[in-house]
Design a protein around this nucleic acid. Structure first.
Lengths: 132, 132
DNA sequence: TTATAAATGTTATATTATTACATAACGTTA
DNA sequence: TAACGTTATGTAATAATATAACATTTATAA
C-alpha cells in the first residue's frame, strides 16, 4: 500500500496550476502565475516542484526544462517515464505503454549496472503539425 | 555515403577537449578550459556545441546539462541516443545496443505520431559505487 | 570572382536553478 | 501537552545555463 501524500499549501497551488494547464509548464511561468497567490520567489516554486517530482505527481521534461502533471494514474513515483514531444508545437504527452515500460525496466547491458530509473523522450511531429 | 564534416577551428578545439576528457563536460567548464586558446565567450562555446550535436560528434545529456563525445563510431547524427548514468559518481556512458535501438526506433503508439528521434537516459549505481 | 553560407567575435541580457539563513507548521511520542 | 525532529515556508542574494543582436571574417561553390 502506497502512502498517500497530502500536499502542502504551496505544493497544492503549484500542482493545480500545472495540472489545469494540461501541458508542460516552465518554472518561471509557474512563478508568474502564482504570484497573486503569495508565492513570490523562485525557490518556493522549485521546492514545490522538487517535492512533486519526488512523489510522482509531476514529471520533468528534461529536454525542455519544463514540468507536466503525471497523466498516468498508476504512476506513484517517477522512475519510469516516457514522453512524446512535438518539435513544432511543443505539445507533450506521457506515453503509458506497458510493453515499453516492461522492456525498459528489465533492460540491462553488459555494464553490470542495474538501472533503477529511466527517462525516455521521443521527438517528432504530432498529427496536427504533420498535416500543415 | 555520409558527408564527412571537417570541423572549424573552434569546433575542433571544443570537440578535442570533450573527447579527451572521456566523460561529460558542462558548457562553462568547457569555456574555462578553452580560454587560453582564445575562446572567450559562452556563445562561442554554445555555437560549437550546437554544431557538434547536430553532426553527431557529441551528445547532450539532458538531465545533466552536459555534453559527451559520441562513443559510437557509427553514430553520425544524434537521433537515437541512450545513456547510462551513475547517480553517485555521475559517470556517463553511451549505450550502444542494436536491439534496444531497433526497438525504440520502431516504436509507435496509438497517437499517430511518427518519431524521428529519441533520447533515453537510464539511472542507477555503477559497479564501483554499488560496492561501496 | 562574386555571392552565399558558415563561422567568428563581442557585448549584453535572458532564463534556469541553488545557497544560505531564519522562521513557522506539522506529526510523533513520551 | 511539551518537547523533539521533520517538513515546509519566507526572503535575499547569487550561481549556472543559455540566447539575442549585431558586426565582421572565412570558407564554399557557382
Amino acid at each position: 500500500m502506497q502512502k498517500v501524500h497530502s500536499l502542502s499549501k504551496n505544493q497544492k497551488i503549484i500542482f493545480d496550476l500545472i495540472d489545469k494547464s494540461g501541458g508542460p509548464m516552465k518554472a518561471y511561468s509557474i512563478l508568474f502565475n502564482v504570484q497573486k497567490k503569495g508565492i513570490k520567489a523562485p525557490l518556493q516554486v522549485y521546492r514545490a516542484l522538487d517535492k512533486l517530482v519526488e512523489i510522482g505527481k509531476i514529471h520533468k521534461i528534461e529536454s525542455r526544462n519544463a514540468f507536466i502533471a503525471c497523466q498516468n494514474s498508476s504512476c506513484q513515483i517517477s522512475k519510469a517515464t516516457a514522453f512524446s514531444i512535438c518539435e513544432s508545437c511543443e505539445n507533450v504527452s506521457e506515453i503509458s505503454n506497458s510493453k515499453l515500460s516492461k522492456y525498459l525496466s528489465n533492460f540491462s547491458d553488459h555494464s553490470g549496472m542495474k538501472y533503477s530509473k529511466y527517462n525516455l523522450e521521443f521527438f517528432g511531429l504530432c498529427k496536427k503539425c504533420k498535416s500543415k
